[in-house]
Amino acid sequence: MLLTDTHTHLYYETDDAKRVELVKRCKENSIIRLFLPNVDTASVPMVYSLKTSFPDICFPMLGLHPCSVKEDWEEELSKIQQAIHQHKIYAIGEIGIDLYWDKTTLPQQILAFKTQISWAKSLKLPINIHCRDAFDEVYEVLLQERDDDLRGIFHCFGGTLEQANKLIELGFYLGIGGVVTYKNAGLDKVVAQVDLKHIVLETDSPYLTPVPYRGKPNESSYLIYIAQKVAELHQTDLETVAAITTENSKRVFGV
């Protein structure tokens, strides 16, 4: 069995001994593919530090998170673009629109989003989308940018079945994380109706910790609980979910 965490900030743990333990627990649960999105220029070296320590299981992504679109966003983009050409990456991300924290930067967020989509297309890479309280805005951008080169993962999907189908129709995979294990979130009912061929798994660690560890810091080894829940919802076994979702991740990232 092989599981893939398509979105983890495991690099936030900087203590070497603790990082070794985090990775050890991943391997014990057959989670041996970790895709690492940065959020800004400061987190780029953190991503590559973890990649250097565990080169066989870590796969970097680079982009400017919408919550990091501040006054200096154009300078941040320029620096990240330079880093992209200095390092091997597997996606542009995480990028997108976040209207939960700050609605005033929407025009800048859209510009940054579109700029980074253009990078992905030119590099033939997928995008990893962050969307919070902004589905309509993100979807509008995706419709505007739609072509044969636009593809990727809608990270931390938590929407309706109608929204899921809209993204699937555009060719995107749905990133399913710990929220699917939350009793009253409603995501379980949606995931049960989405074919596994459209799903990838993620933790978004250290955030969105699944049951039974909800309320504590998340880690990539907890992906096993997300996979078990998805298996339960689809009335299949863990091995089947692992095989299909990992194969989906290979199609997205090309590795």
Rank of each mutant, 00 (worst) to 15 (best):
Y213K: 06
G254Q: 14
W119Q: 09
K121N: 04
E21Q: 13
Y48C: 00
Y182W: 15
A243W: 02
Q144R: 11
V180I: 10
V20W: 12
R25I: 05
C26T: 03
H198Q: 11
E162N: 15
I224G: 03
L150F: 09
E232A: 06
M1S: 01
T240H: 08
L233H: 08
G178P: 15
A227Y: 13
E162P: 09
L238A: 04
H198M: 11
Q81T: 02
S220F: 05
L36I: 11
T8V: 08
G178H: 15
D40P: 01
R151T: 14
A134D: 02
D56Y: 01
Y213R: 07
L161P: 13
V200A: 15
T104I: 03
A42G: 06
L10R: 00
K88W: 07
F135R: 01
F54Q: 01
C26R: 01
D102W: 09
V20G: 14
E74A: 06
G152Q: 07
G171Q: 14
G254A: 11
K250H: 08
L3K: 02
I57H: 07
H7D: 04
Y222P: 06
D98G: 04
Q82H: 10
S220I: 01
Q228A: 09
L106K: 08
L34W: 01
S118H: 13
P210C: 05
S53R: 01
T105L: 03
E137V: 04
G175Y: 13
I226N: 07
S68A: 11
L2D: 07
I244N: 07
I199E: 13
L238T: 03
P55D: 01
P107R: 12
L170D: 12
T115D: 12
D195E: 06
Q163I: 02
S249C: 10
H130S: 06
E21K: 15
G175L: 12
T160S: 14
R25T: 05
A185N: 14
A185H: 14
S205E: 03
I127P: 04
Q108L: 11
T240L: 10
K51Q: 04
L10I: 07
V255G: 06
E247V: 00
D133G: 02
A83I: 01
T14D: 14
H85T: 00
K24C: 09
V255S: 11
K250G: 00
T245R: 09
D149A: 08
K229A: 02
S49D: 10
V39W: 03
P66T: 05
G177K: 05
L201M: 08
Y213Q: 02
Q228P: 00
G93Q: 04
L196T: 03
G171I: 13
Y173A: 15
C26V: 05
L2K: 12
I95C: 03
T240M: 08
I110N: 15
T6C: 15
H87F: 06
Q144P: 09
A112Q: 08
L111Q: 14
P60A: 04
P206D: 10
L64K: 00
G152V: 03
T6D: 15
G178Y: 15
T115K: 13
D56N: 05
A83S: 14
E71V: 00
D98Y: 03
Q228S: 05
H155T: 05
L36T: 04
E232P: 06
L34A: 01
K124Y: 11
